[in-house]
């Protein structure tokens, strides 16, 4: 007599640990990834208590580091390039706010010179970016 086994084993792969693996990968990549810094300048921002939030979409950044290097939105510029660059930006968006991200230890002279150029370019809304106190 022939015995036929009718054993059907459903092939099931447990999927519940998929998420664990995926998260492990995410965490791994998050930890190992080094972001390209927008500014490329090492800046220690001054701190403030009275700082207000600035609407992000209206900002153009001016970065000034300790050694008086000036960057406008990722481009290294000289003092004389500020006026034409900002004029072009103001034409696109008249409500533009120029945010000064200046190093705590920078000399005031450079900031003043940059502000002078902004006045000439008629970019009168400025903001001095700071770190909130106690962070």
């Amino acid at each position: 007599m022939e015995l036929r086994r009718k054993a059907r084993t459903g092939a099931k792969i447990p999927m519940s640990s998929m998420a664990d693996i995926a998260f492990l990968l995410i965490v791994f990549f998050m930890v190992t990834t080094i972001f390209k810094l927008e500014q490329g300048l090492a800046i220690t921002l001054p701190r403030s208590e009275a700082g207000e939030k600035i609407p992000r979409e209206r900002i153009a950044h001016v970065w000034i580091d300790e050694r008086s290097t000036i960057l406008i939105d990722d481009l290294v510029v000289g003092l004389d390039d500020i006026e034409p660059m900002v004029t072009a930006k103001i034409r696109e968006n008249p409500a533009l706010i120029i945010a000064f991200n200046t190093d705590d230890a920078a000399r005031y002279r450079v900031v003043n010179q940059a502000m002078d150029r902004l006045k000439r370019a008629n970019a009168l809304r400025v903001s001095f970016t700071t770190m909130p106190e106690g962070q």
Partner: peptide
Amino acid sequence: EIGLTLILPS
């Protein structure tokens, strides 16, 4: 982004 906002004189 947090900052101290001012309006410069024209």
